[in-house]
Nucleic acid binder design. Sequence first.
DNA 1: CTCCAATTTCAACATTTGTTAATTCAATAG
DNA 2: CTATTGAATTAACAAATGTTGAAATTGGAG
Lengths: 251, 251
Amino acid sequence: MNNPLGKARLFLKGRLRHALSDHEAALLDSVVDEGVRVPDGHVVQARSVRATHSTLLLDGFIARVIDDAGTRNIVGLQVPGDFVDLHAFALKRLDHDVVTMGPALLGSVSHERLAQIVRDEPHLTRVLWFSTLLDAAIHREWILKLEQLKAEERLGHIMCELWHRLNFVGLADAHGFNMPLLQTHLANACGTTAVHINRVIKAVRQRGLLEINRGRVTMPDRPALEAFSRFKPDYLYGEGSLFMSEDLREP
Amino acid sequence: MNNPLGKARLFLKGRLRHALSDHEAALLDSVVDEGVRVPDGHVVQARSVRATHSTLLLDGFIARVIDDAGTRNIVGLQVPGDFVDLHAFALKRLDHDVVTMGPALLGSVSHERLAQIVRDEPHLTRVLWFSTLLDAAIHREWILKLEQLKAEERLGHIMCELWHRLNFVGLADAHGFNMPLLQTHLANACGTTAVHINRVIKAVRQRGLLEINRGRVTMPDRPALEAFSRFKPDYLYGEGSLFMSEDLREP
DNA sequence: CTCCAATTTCAACATTTGTTAATTCAATAG
DNA sequence: CTATTGAATTAACAAATGTTGAAATTGGAG
């Protein structure tokens, strides 16, 4: 059953969780320590600081943040089940900060343990590698979104993405999801200003596509929102998607 | 000497080429086949098609392209020495097309060989993993650039990035570099239109910061251009940079 | 050389987004 | 309950970018 109650049970859930053997799932679970609760704004891994551990997000939201000349930019978002700074295992120093958005529960794995896995578990290594490339695929979709979409569509797109990612791990419902991000943060993630994101939120609400208020996102007609935002979930490599790497199953 | 004349000699040059032992450099070199010359617009790896090989770019330029609703968007650029679709080894199917910009020379490695490396060479595996995360770091910087910079600065930023990446592999000179991208392509990579990129090229030329014409990029005052574009090269993980992972040296 | 096609350049106008500043609303401490 | 603070909302105006259509330039093919 792939250790369904383990600390790492959400890792790659909805993607290719079944690519892990029972042994691998148990091993992964055993190297994650007990979760630690941290408050809003906690810096999980700071830019340019030598990393010795990597963090599995067990509960809550995390943003990848780059502060530059007084402006705070969000270059990525992570949801429960994401190995948020596995990148730091190979890079050792990150180019950005990893920061909690709202309180969160964090599991930690030492890089010594990860190095053992790379040495002894080639298949699990490929799965871990895969999970970091999933982040890269999401980065590319954000680039695409920023290059070709207007602010209204960008907002819709990011909300659709979050719904799907949360749905993989069982945290979305038919009408939306809960999310601690403020309008300022949405502006930072959409490459626009707080004033403009407010205009845009109002506009999509009036279109009947999306409602956002105090921690709750409501999607009255998600298919319509996805069409409006030109959102297609393939790049998330979910189970059964066009791109999913079923080949990783074979150890 | 890390096999200085080998096919893979440009791989990670300027970054942590010295992280590879002679054995690893020779091994990497041995798994790359003879280079194949391909023309402009050649699709190295198509979106959603099962990949069986990964490609090392030996000469020329390559773009990561996502076509969507008639528009062609460039979500990444690759230069000689880049393992352009190593991502496809772990993902198996890519979310984007990998396309040559101008004629190019391509080396190829089968995924069977890569799987052997992952099984038998944990340190080399980490270095290959690192190289894909370098792409992710560049993706994040593009997101940052698109979120916070105006078109003039975006253009300057992307040109500074290319200069540094080409400089790592010895293909930049003091005053600029050669590049086959047309104004249309620069527009596609900056998230703007061909008409506007033309305005912008004119503007930065008049500022005395950058000249672009028929395949040649000239930077009369690169430090000034970098300041104007808010470009800082750390995220490229070059030798001696803030973020470079010197720790990967230890096998 | 001449012609042709692709690329670059330009102008006029429309739309989107940024900026500044003020106002309203919501949550919480006391 | 009230005061206070942070967040959300709105308005008016400025700046950046998109759109359309045309003209100029360039590099090759013949």
